[in-house]
Amino acid sequence: MGFVRNPKDVISGLLFIAIALLFAWQSRELTIGSAMRMGPGYFPLVLSVVMGLLGLIVLINGLRYPGEAPSGFAWRALVILVGATLFFGFAMRPLGFLPTLAITVFASTLASTLFRPLTALAITAVMVVFCWGVFILGLGLPLPLLGPWLGGY
């Protein structure tokens, strides 16, 4: 990839163009209307074009001027934390508040390289009790403590 001088800019440019195309494709079935009576598709389409052009400029700059490649990704943290968040969303209804929270907190402690099992269990226990106290007792959020999969309602 000798012609890619600034990988960060090239990737950003491509990302912006891709998103612009996605939005343009999304607005294809909307009425465009005229400048006087703009339809729902007018502004999104204009913005998509602008964004595509900006992406192109970023891309071209990335091919012309040197720069750094992105590095130092926290892959472990990214995968585990996004996974824990998705799990929370998925499990909230079927499992209920307390088990979901416990698993989410415990899972997210795994994202750190400084993970220790005992500390993780302690954090989980403290968080479950604390959140139960604050959100259920204190703020009275209407969250089922145990979901239908665990014999709750």
Binding site: V105, S108, L114, I123
Partner: peptide
């Protein structure tokens, strides 16, 4: 920080 952030994740989710 590694003790603190799981709590922040939990608060964000809730």
């Amino acid at each position: 920080y590694h003790v603190m952030y799981p709590a922040i994740i939990a608060f964000c989710c809730i």
